[in-house]
């Protein structure tokens, strides 16, 4: 699944470790989501959306690019 997590993180000048701490997950989890190796669960997707004050659809896109 495509996502804008890396862009959103960079806009806030956060490292993967900082984002991971805000989401209460490991840095490896953030890296795996950013690189498309792991699709987050619905609860984690909601946490990410709330953190960036966006909707899930504005961050994640299930259509092939």
């Amino acid at each position: 699944m495509n996502n804008r997590l890396k862009v959103l993180r960079a806009e806030r000048n956060w490292s993967q470790a900082e984002l991971a701490m805000r989401l209460d997950v490991s840095r490896q989890a953030v890296n795996a989501i950013e690189t498309g190796k792991h699709d987050p669960s619905l609860p984690l997707a909601f946490r990410i959306a709330r953190l960036f004050a966006l909707s899930i659809e504005e961050i994640f896109d299930d259509r092939a690019s």
Partner: peptide, 15 residues
């Protein structure tokens, strides 16, 4: 703390 790389994978301390 800043975002450290643009290629999506930062220097990996876990590895």
């Amino acid at each position: 703390m800043t975002a450290q790389a643009d290629d999506g994978i930062e220097a990996n301390p876990a590895r």
